[in-house]
Design a protein around this nucleic acid. Sequence first.
RNA 1: GCCGAAGUGGCGGAAUUGGCAGACGCGCGGGAUUCAAAAUCCCGUCCUGGCAACAGGGUGAGGGUUCGACUCCCUCCUUCGGCACCA
Length: 922
Amino acid sequence: MKGHYRFGEIEKKWQRFWEESKTFKAQDCDDSRPKYYVLDMFPYPSGQGLHVGHPEGYTASDIVARYRRMKGFNVLHPFGWDAFGLPAEQYAIQTGTAPEETTQRNIANMRRQTKSLGFSYDWDREVATTDPKYFKWTQWIFLRLFNSYFDQAEQKAKPIDQLPIPEGLSGAEKKKYIDDHRLAYEAEVPVNWCPELGTVLANEEVIGGLSERGNHPVVRKPMRQWMLRITKYAERLLDDLAEVDWPYSIKKLQTDWVGKSVGADVDFALDGFDETIRVFTTRPDTLFGATYMVMAPEHPLVDKIAAEDKKEAVDKYRTQAARKSDLDRTDLAKDKTGEPIGALAINPVNGEKIPIWISDYVLISYGTGAIMAVPAHDERDFEFATKFNLPIIPVVEPDRQTALALPIPTDYSYDGPIGERVSIEEWSAIADSIIKEVKAGRAPFTRPVPQKLEGEVARLVADDSVAREEISMRMRDCAIISQCNAGEGWAINSGQFDGLSTAEFKEQIADWLEQKGLGKKSVNYKLRDWLFSRQRYWGEPFPILHADDGRVMALSEDDLPLELPVVEDYRPIGTGEPPLANAVDWVNVTLGDGSKAKRETNTMPQWAGSCWYYLRYLDPDNDRQGWDPEKEKYWMGDVGVDLYIGGAEHAVLHLLYSRFWHKLLYDLGYVSTKEPFKKLINQGMILGEDGQKMSKSRGNVVNPDKVIADHGADSMRLYEMFMGPLDAVKPWNMQGVEGVHRFLQKLWRLIVDKDTGEIDNAVKETEADEATLRLLNQTVKKVGDDIESFGFNTAISAMMIFVNHLTRLTVVPKAVVEKLVLVLAPFAPHIAEELWEKLSHAESLAYESWPEYDEKLVKEKEIELAVQVNGKIRDKIVVAAGASEEQIKQQALSSGKVAIAMRGEDPKKIIVIKSRLVNIVV
RNA sequence: GCCGAAGUGGCGGAAUUGGCAGACGCGCGGGAUUCAAAAUCCCGUCCUGGCAACAGGGUGAGGGUUCGACUCCCUCCUUCGGCACCA
């Protein structure tokens, strides 16, 4: 049976052909064609190999790449390996196998798997982040960070030698000043230290305060770390999101991660001390409601101002708080803890003395590490105040709708120095007095009535709506006090500011504070500087030397790459020093002047290599530069990477870090766009056949090698695209693979004679009939449109419909199947090439023009319209495509079924939607 | 708790963005072919009633807007993903 669809042979044949002919080699700087850069998020080469989730994104990007080539674009479609990573290091610790070796083996296997799917990558541009020829430039970019500072006024990075240095600094001060402005700097920051394992753990390796492996306790321990000043770019990272075409949800995630809040810094004087405490608040309009102050336990001023008799309690609380990991803190979020420190702050707006507490719900790392607490209008402060019986003063009156939604107070009371004591028992008395006032003729108010009061007083003022309103006005403070209201509204209890809206108040109080020298407008971000060092072996070494005299020196560019030393033992040494500290010969360096220095023994995190790989693809073999500026200009053009496809798990960190590095490179003139990735698409996760996440322990992992062996790469590609929308989470179904495989079989049999393997006799050089021609044009249009809008599943469906149509014909016009083969090619390239060859074309179809369609032939000649009577379909009519509204009306009314449904009544209105339906309203 | 996405046949999913709900595929039922099977082809397949023509119901639940709602608005429920005291 010569003519069977032998996908195995065909796929190998064409993969070899593409590889040998370098069919997909991208031409640098070819100005004769528009460029198109399609990028996949490169994978970590794991020992598990490829899983079926990988080819989903890769197939989608490959379809676009192949489609764009046929549309005449010069396409850059590269691939590579994010090859540094923990698993290889863990394997090294367990077995002694060098991570380099493991990594090479895994890359070889995954490269084989990736190639077996027939993706049109330009393999000549393959990169691996672990290759010294690659990480030389990762280190080079680090040096750019180290040797740059951020000019606040111009909002951009500049070379450090342009940093203006204040007059009169000593040599040491000057050096410190410079170091304090570098975008890469060293700092003592707390990390997850596991004494038992003698190592530092990543956050995800710590579960409930214990190490993931071995369940040993983990503590926060300050250690010297490299940090990157990403926070300097916070504003630009937010602003430039407007320039990119990304899913809304990803933009939102990034926005929230940066976490900009606008508010004011306010200085509170201390009773009995010269110092002031600065707080940051987004609600300066609630200053009059600040009834106490909270400082983070770690706040440096605490020691100084704590009262003698409180010191012991304060110390105790601090040690407790220090022992909590970040996780513990959040676990205990519900139950607030704290300790008064016996000092008073003075509220600058009204001179009230308010107590100062410490509590771990205030973070030292955000804002100023101290807050003014406004329990009436902040959930956390409210919780704290009710627990510790602190006063609550409402200073914002919610609008009517919000007030109505507030539950009625039950038994809340407090004994604070400010504000009145309120309890449910007193309500009747208050209500009585209100009613008296109302009867005395006070003006009406538009306030809601607390429901619980209604029963008691409604009787008295049954027919007096004015009274009801008045009562509710008087009760509002009770309602507000009993419940925290974080919303906006109008100022009350706020002196001369009463009556202002929240927005107006914020404006005015900021000016007022500034005038009095008590505060100013201020902006804060959640974003923190990037902890950029790891105590690991398998990562990029820092190109940094620590001289014995304390100087920190960068290697010169000529000394790059700084390669990893060969070591015997991949474990960290017990002190917490990274494994590189074991490599004594590597670590110790004699400088040109004979003095000694030690190399940095931390390594860079996995993010480093993936931050800029899209640039290395532009010029992967360049050993003089990270990339050639001309090539960068050509491929990155005005918009950067045209299409970037990858998993949503990188929505925040990878994309944010990449954007940060790109902006630095932009500031220094190495790249020509503000943003690296113009359009971003996330592929959704593929679940196992049981609808669960694929995992070895569940035994529901689908092996791509097996799918390809059983059904072929084309079927695999087609199925992954046919499953549903690219970004949806969807379960695998092996019978679905067979379904698309049958489609390819059907197409094959349509064109190839099963005995001879030649073109089937039914395929003839002949004119297509009208219906076939119309469907062909519709299919070509649909497939093209769907590729452009990433609707691959419906594109495949359209091709299936067309193939089903063709199989019913006795004679199949050759020109028609040729176009079909061309539109199928991006999806199932192997079978398409084979059929194209059988249709007697000597050249690969990879650069064949995408078929044109004729808009006139896409349109139907006759259209079936649904006829509704009062919105219910009663009949269908067929009209000519160009029929007028009047003609359609007449034809609709002449239907017998319609007449019955109308029951003899006259049409009140007839709605005609051309090419859709007619609705007769009676 | 907050934020984001999504709920459509037995299953994956379509629906020109307010206009014939269920395209296409899977599965299932029936038939053809075959000594038989696989493969292939044809017919059927949202639910209820009916031999049928047909009638009624139907897109997580309830309400609303509209001649007309899977699509827009309000309330609620469920699932998935992210964040976690950020003042």
